[in-house]
């Protein structure tokens, strides 16, 4: 190909690219906009209303204004067990700044009688919720345990951590981000 032909082709490509960039500009803002509920970073955290072992109901959307760590766990899952003490430590340290931890036990695939002894043994002070039907797990598209969703004060998922156990520094950095 001759030099002139090449230069013409390159110029056309660049002009088309520039036109496409302007034509495809998103005037409406990002499509997620934190309005659609989905278990993904940048989306509204799907709402749930679950009961504690004592029968008290907790609804996620009622906690708007607080930063929330939603942790999905089961007693048979070793990494879930391993990270509970770290979560407790971080919760104790940051709860006065507005952190709430909701540890949702996957009761539908766990031994319901093993939950309370584990919570007592670990000395956990944050609310434990029971997902007895698997509906919450479906809404959060649970594929691996543990799964943690860091929800900011506006109810938007800031970060998702799949797998564990989470290191203390990871929990601390993520929690500080949602408390901002």
């Amino acid at each position: 190909m001759q030099q002139n032909q090449r230069r013409i082709i390159y110029s056309i490509i660049l002009l088309l690219g520039l036109a496409w960039t302007f034509a495809s500009a998103d005037q409406s803002g990002t499509s997620t906009s934190g309005k659609i509920p989905a278990p993904q970073q940048g989306f509204l955290a799907p709402d749930f209303n679950l009961k504690t072992p004592a029968g008290e109901s907790i609804k996620l959307s009622d906690l708007r204004g607080q930063a929330v760590l939603v942790n999905l766990w089961a007693t048979w899952c070793p990494p879930c067990r391993a990270e509970m003490q770290t979560i407790e430590k971080i919760y104790t340290e940051y709860k006065d700044q507005g952190l709430m931890v909701l540890a949702v036990n996957m009761t539908y695939q766990d031994d319901p009688f093993a939950v309370l002894p584990f919570v007592t043994e670990q000395g956990l002070s944050f609310p434990i919720l029971l997902d007895e039907t698997g509906e919450m797990a479906d809404d959060y598209q649970l594929r691996s345990l543990p799964s943690s969703f860091f929800v900011d004060r506006n109810g938007i998922i800031n970060k998702v951590v799949i797998g564990g156990p989470m290191a203390e520094a990871l929990l601390r950095t993520r929690v500080e981000e949602i408390l901002e």
Binding site: L14, G17, S24
Partner: peptide, 26 residues
């Protein structure tokens, strides 16, 4: 990237709704 970024729903937007990745790709 310049072409396909237009179909993304998670673009970082800069002034006038331009997609940052497209500007860098250009």
């Amino acid at each position: 990237r310049l072409f396909l970024e237009a179909f993304r729903g998670d673009s970082t937007l800069i002034f006038g709704g331009l997609r940052l990745a497209q500007v860098i790709a250009w």
